[in-house]
Amino acid sequence: MFDTDLSYEILERAELVSALHRLVEGEGLLLHYQPIYGLSARKVQSYEALARWNHPERGMIPPDVFIRLAEETGLIHQLGERILHIACREALTWPAHVNVSVNVSPLQLKNRKFPEIVRNVLQETGLDGARLEVEITESVLMDEYEHKNVILSELKALGCKISMDDFGTGYSSLSYLWKFSFDKIKIDRSFVQALPDPTAKEIIQAILGIASIRAMTVTVEGVETAAQLQMVSSMGCSEAQGYYLGRPQQYANTDRREVEMALAWG
Protein backbone atom coordinates (compact mmCIF):
# COMPACT_ATOMS: atom_id res chain seq x y z
CA MET A 1 0.00 0.00 0.00
CA PHE A 2 1.17 3.52 -0.76
CA ASP A 3 2.64 5.31 2.23
CA THR A 4 3.09 9.08 1.85
CA ASP A 5 5.66 9.33 4.65
CA LEU A 6 7.70 6.44 3.27
CA SER A 7 7.57 7.92 -0.23
CA TYR A 8 8.84 11.23 1.13
CA GLU A 9 11.69 9.52 2.96
CA ILE A 10 12.74 7.68 -0.20
CA LEU A 11 12.72 10.89 -2.25
CA GLU A 12 14.60 12.76 0.47
CA ARG A 13 17.25 10.05 0.61
CA ALA A 14 17.59 10.06 -3.19
CA GLU A 15 18.09 13.82 -3.15
CA LEU A 16 20.71 13.57 -0.42
CA VAL A 17 22.57 10.82 -2.27
CA SER A 18 22.65 12.99 -5.39
CA ALA A 19 23.94 15.93 -3.36
CA LEU A 20 26.46 13.65 -1.66
CA HIS A 21 28.17 13.07 -5.00
CA ARG A 22 28.73 16.82 -5.22
CA LEU A 23 29.99 16.85 -1.63
CA VAL A 24 32.64 14.28 -2.56
CA GLU A 25 33.88 16.78 -5.14
CA GLY A 26 34.21 19.34 -2.39
CA GLU A 27 30.96 21.30 -2.83
CA GLY A 28 29.77 22.29 0.63
CA LEU A 29 32.43 20.27 2.47
CA LEU A 30 33.98 22.04 5.45
CA LEU A 31 36.43 20.90 8.08
CA HIS A 32 36.19 22.23 11.60
CA TYR A 33 39.04 21.70 14.03
CA GLN A 34 38.89 21.04 17.76
CA PRO A 35 42.11 21.54 19.75
CA ILE A 36 43.72 18.79 21.81
CA TYR A 37 45.96 20.16 24.55
CA GLY A 38 49.06 18.69 26.15
CA LEU A 39 48.41 19.05 29.87
CA SER A 40 52.01 19.28 31.00
CA ALA A 41 53.13 21.82 28.38
CA ARG A 42 49.70 23.52 28.31
CA LYS A 43 49.98 23.84 24.53
CA VAL A 44 47.98 22.66 21.56
CA GLN A 45 49.37 19.27 20.53
CA SER A 46 46.98 18.57 17.68
CA TYR A 47 43.63 19.40 16.14
CA GLU A 48 40.94 16.85 15.41
CA ALA A 49 39.46 17.41 11.96
CA LEU A 50 35.67 17.14 11.98
CA ALA A 51 33.77 17.05 8.68
CA ARG A 52 30.79 19.35 8.15
CA TRP A 53 28.33 19.51 5.25
CA ASN A 54 26.87 22.92 4.46
CA HIS A 55 24.02 21.95 2.13
CA PRO A 56 22.87 24.88 -0.08
CA GLU A 57 19.20 24.31 0.80
CA ARG A 58 19.14 22.28 4.01
CA GLY A 59 21.94 24.11 5.80
CA MET A 60 24.32 22.19 8.05
CA ILE A 61 23.67 18.44 7.89
CA PRO A 62 24.87 16.47 10.95
CA PRO A 63 27.98 14.32 10.39
CA ASP A 64 26.29 11.17 11.69
CA VAL A 65 23.73 11.55 8.88
CA PHE A 66 25.97 12.11 5.88
CA ILE A 67 28.86 9.88 7.04
CA ARG A 68 26.43 6.99 7.49
CA LEU A 69 24.93 7.73 4.09
CA ALA A 70 28.38 7.82 2.51
CA GLU A 71 29.15 4.42 4.03
CA GLU A 72 25.87 2.94 2.80
CA THR A 73 26.42 4.21 -0.75
CA GLY A 74 30.12 3.38 -0.96
CA LEU A 75 31.07 7.05 -1.32
CA ILE A 76 32.95 6.97 1.99
CA HIS A 77 36.20 6.12 0.19
CA GLN A 78 36.16 9.21 -2.01
CA LEU A 79 34.80 11.40 0.78
CA GLY A 80 37.38 10.10 3.25
CA GLU A 81 40.21 10.79 0.83
CA ARG A 82 38.91 14.31 0.23
CA ILE A 83 38.73 14.97 3.99
CA LEU A 84 42.22 13.60 4.48
CA HIS A 85 43.62 15.76 1.69
CA ILE A 86 42.05 18.97 3.03
CA ALA A 87 43.15 18.26 6.60
CA CYS A 88 46.77 17.56 5.61
CA ARG A 89 46.91 20.60 3.36
CA GLU A 90 45.56 22.93 6.04
CA ALA A 91 47.82 21.43 8.71
CA LEU A 92 50.80 22.74 6.74
CA THR A 93 49.84 26.27 7.83
CA TRP A 94 50.14 25.36 11.53
CA PRO A 95 53.28 25.31 13.68
CA ALA A 96 55.43 22.24 12.99
CA HIS A 97 54.78 20.73 16.43
CA VAL A 98 50.99 20.64 15.92
CA ASN A 99 49.54 17.46 14.43
CA VAL A 100 46.24 16.84 12.67
CA SER A 101 43.94 13.99 13.68
CA VAL A 102 41.58 12.45 11.12
CA ASN A 103 38.82 9.92 11.81
CA VAL A 104 38.78 6.89 9.52
CA SER A 105 35.75 4.73 8.78
CA PRO A 106 35.94 0.94 9.23
CA LEU A 107 35.10 0.65 5.53
CA GLN A 108 38.14 2.70 4.56
CA LEU A 109 40.37 0.25 6.38
CA LYS A 110 38.88 -2.61 4.40
CA ASN A 111 40.48 -1.10 1.33
CA ARG A 112 43.86 -2.75 0.84
CA LYS A 113 45.05 0.37 -0.99
CA PHE A 114 44.29 2.73 1.89
CA PRO A 115 47.95 3.05 2.98
CA GLU A 116 48.83 3.92 -0.61
CA ILE A 117 46.11 6.58 -0.62
CA VAL A 118 47.53 8.08 2.58
CA ARG A 119 51.05 7.97 1.15
CA ASN A 120 49.92 9.81 -1.97
CA VAL A 121 48.09 12.46 0.06
CA LEU A 122 51.18 13.06 2.19
CA GLN A 123 53.33 13.39 -0.91
CA GLU A 124 50.87 15.71 -2.66
CA THR A 125 50.42 18.00 0.34
CA GLY A 126 53.98 17.81 1.64
CA LEU A 127 52.89 17.01 5.18
CA ASP A 128 55.27 14.92 7.26
CA GLY A 129 53.61 11.58 8.04
CA ALA A 130 54.60 11.99 11.70
CA ARG A 131 52.13 14.90 11.94
CA LEU A 132 49.14 12.78 10.88
CA GLU A 133 47.13 10.93 13.52
CA VAL A 134 44.67 8.34 12.26
CA GLU A 135 41.73 7.82 14.63
CA ILE A 136 39.81 4.55 14.62
CA THR A 137 37.27 2.99 16.95
CA GLU A 138 37.72 -0.53 18.24
CA SER A 139 34.82 -1.66 16.05
CA VAL A 140 37.30 -1.39 13.18
CA LEU A 141 39.18 -4.39 14.55
CA MET A 142 36.19 -6.58 15.35
CA ASP A 143 36.37 -8.36 12.00
CA GLU A 144 39.15 -9.12 9.51
CA TYR A 145 41.64 -8.30 12.25
CA GLU A 146 44.71 -9.70 10.48
CA HIS A 147 43.94 -7.75 7.31
CA LYS A 148 43.42 -4.49 9.19
CA ASN A 149 46.45 -5.07 11.38
CA VAL A 150 48.57 -5.16 8.22
CA ILE A 151 47.03 -1.89 7.02
CA LEU A 152 47.56 -0.16 10.37
CA SER A 153 51.15 -1.39 10.44
CA GLU A 154 51.73 0.07 6.98
CA LEU A 155 50.30 3.40 8.12
CA LYS A 156 52.73 3.40 11.05
CA ALA A 157 55.54 2.68 8.61
CA LEU A 158 54.63 5.97 6.92
CA GLY A 159 55.21 7.67 10.26
CA CYS A 160 51.51 8.10 11.08
CA LYS A 161 50.29 7.77 14.64
CA ILE A 162 47.33 5.45 15.32
CA SER A 163 44.76 6.42 17.94
CA MET A 164 41.92 4.34 19.38
CA ASP A 165 38.93 6.61 19.86
CA ASP A 166 36.09 6.25 22.40
CA PHE A 167 38.13 3.83 24.49
CA GLY A 168 36.14 2.00 27.15
CA THR A 169 32.81 1.86 25.35
CA GLY A 170 33.29 -1.48 23.57
CA TYR A 171 33.69 -5.08 24.64
CA SER A 172 37.27 -5.99 23.82
CA SER A 173 39.29 -2.82 24.34
CA LEU A 174 42.00 -4.41 26.47
CA SER A 175 42.66 -7.27 24.07
CA TYR A 176 43.14 -4.81 21.20
CA LEU A 177 45.70 -2.87 23.21
CA TRP A 178 47.82 -5.99 23.52
CA LYS A 179 47.35 -7.04 19.91
CA PHE A 180 48.33 -3.74 18.33
CA SER A 181 50.74 -1.04 19.41
CA PHE A 182 48.57 2.06 19.43
CA ASP A 183 50.25 5.42 19.87
CA LYS A 184 47.31 6.96 21.65
CA ILE A 185 44.05 6.02 23.32
CA LYS A 186 41.23 8.50 23.79
CA ILE A 187 39.13 7.91 26.90
CA ASP A 188 35.45 8.27 26.13
CA ARG A 189 33.77 11.40 27.45
CA SER A 190 31.31 9.37 29.55
CA PHE A 191 34.05 8.66 32.11
CA VAL A 192 35.00 12.32 32.40
CA GLN A 193 31.36 13.34 32.76
CA ALA A 194 31.04 10.88 35.64
CA LEU A 195 33.85 12.49 37.66
CA PRO A 196 34.35 12.84 40.59
CA ASP A 197 32.60 9.48 40.97
CA PRO A 198 35.19 7.11 42.56
CA THR A 199 34.50 4.30 40.10
CA ALA A 200 35.05 6.54 37.07
CA LYS A 201 38.24 7.83 38.62
CA GLU A 202 39.50 4.30 39.28
CA ILE A 203 38.78 3.26 35.69
CA ILE A 204 40.66 6.26 34.32
CA GLN A 205 43.60 5.51 36.60
CA ALA A 206 43.59 1.87 35.45
CA ILE A 207 43.64 2.98 31.82
CA LEU A 208 46.53 5.32 32.59
CA GLY A 209 48.43 2.44 34.14
CA ILE A 210 47.97 0.24 31.07
CA ALA A 211 48.90 3.11 28.77
CA SER A 212 52.08 3.69 30.74
CA ILE A 213 53.11 0.06 30.29
CA ARG A 214 52.43 0.25 26.57
CA ALA A 215 54.04 3.71 26.21
CA MET A 216 50.82 5.24 24.87
CA THR A 217 49.57 8.80 25.11
CA VAL A 218 46.19 9.19 26.84
CA THR A 219 43.71 11.85 25.73
CA VAL A 220 40.56 12.46 27.75
CA GLU A 221 37.55 13.66 25.79
CA GLY A 222 34.58 15.68 26.95
CA VAL A 223 36.32 18.12 29.32
CA GLU A 224 33.64 20.76 29.83
CA THR A 225 34.48 22.40 33.16
CA ALA A 226 37.48 23.81 34.99
CA ALA A 227 37.01 21.20 37.72
CA GLN A 228 37.19 18.35 35.19
CA LEU A 229 40.33 19.85 33.67
CA GLN A 230 42.00 20.03 37.06
CA MET A 231 41.01 16.48 37.94
CA VAL A 232 42.27 14.81 34.75
CA SER A 233 45.44 16.88 34.91
CA SER A 234 46.14 15.86 38.52
CA MET A 235 45.54 12.21 37.60
CA GLY A 236 48.35 12.34 35.06
CA CYS A 237 46.46 12.31 31.76
CA SER A 238 48.63 13.35 28.81
CA GLU A 239 46.11 15.38 26.82
CA ALA A 240 42.62 16.83 27.09
CA GLN A 241 39.92 17.78 24.62
CA GLY A 242 36.49 19.28 25.14
CA TYR A 243 34.26 22.34 24.93
CA TYR A 244 35.91 23.96 27.96
CA LEU A 245 39.19 24.03 26.06
CA GLY A 246 37.77 24.88 22.67
CA ARG A 247 34.84 24.10 20.42
CA PRO A 248 35.32 22.94 16.83
CA GLN A 249 35.91 25.92 14.54
CA GLN A 250 36.53 26.22 10.83
CA TYR A 251 39.97 27.75 11.22
CA ALA A 252 42.64 26.52 13.59
CA ASN A 253 44.30 29.50 15.26
CA THR A 254 47.04 28.10 17.46
CA ASP A 255 48.27 31.41 18.86
CA ARG A 256 44.80 32.43 20.01
CA ARG A 257 44.19 28.95 21.42
CA GLU A 258 47.30 29.25 23.58
CA VAL A 259 45.92 32.45 25.09
CA GLU A 260 42.54 30.82 25.64
CA MET A 261 44.20 27.87 27.33
CA ALA A 262 46.05 30.15 29.74
CA LEU A 263 42.79 31.87 30.63
CA ALA A 264 40.93 28.58 30.98
CA TRP A 265 43.61 27.15 33.23
CA GLY A 266 43.46 30.17 35.51
Rank of each mutant, 00 (worst) to 15 (best):
I136Y: 06
I213G: 03
Y145C: 00
I136K: 05
A240D: 09
W53V: 08
P35M: 09
I185K: 01
D188H: 09
D165H: 04
S105Y: 10
K179Q: 15
V232S: 00
I187R: 02
L127Q: 03
R257G: 06
E90V: 08
F114P: 03
D64L: 07
H147A: 10
A227S: 08
K113A: 12
V192R: 00
S175P: 02
D3I: 13
A91D: 00
L152S: 03
E72N: 11
S212V: 04
G266M: 14
A41R: 05
F191C: 07
I86Y: 04
D3W: 07
A70F: 02
A51Y: 04
Q228N: 06
K186D: 02
G236A: 11
N120T: 15
L107M: 13
V100S: 06
L79Q: 03
V232H: 00
S234D: 14
D3H: 05
E48V: 09
A41M: 07
W265E: 13
K161E: 03
I185Y: 04
W53L: 13
S175Y: 06
L127V: 09
L127G: 05
L20S: 06
M142G: 02
N111M: 10
K110E: 15
H32L: 05
L11A: 10
R257L: 14
A227V: 15
H97T: 15
R58P: 05
A211M: 05
Y176W: 12
F114L: 13
L263H: 11
H85V: 09
S163V: 06
P248L: 13
Q230W: 12
D5H: 10
N111W: 15
F66V: 06
E144K: 06
E15K: 13
V232E: 01
P115H: 13
A41C: 04
S163E: 01
P56C: 13
Q78R: 12
V220E: 00
R119N: 09
N149A: 14
P95L: 07
M261Q: 06
H147S: 04
V220G: 00
P196N: 10
L50K: 06
T254K: 07
A215N: 14
A41E: 10
A227Q: 14
I67H: 03
V220I: 03
A211W: 02
G38S: 15
R58G: 08
L109Q: 02
I213M: 12
G242F: 08
H21K: 10
R131D: 12
Q123E: 15
D183H: 08
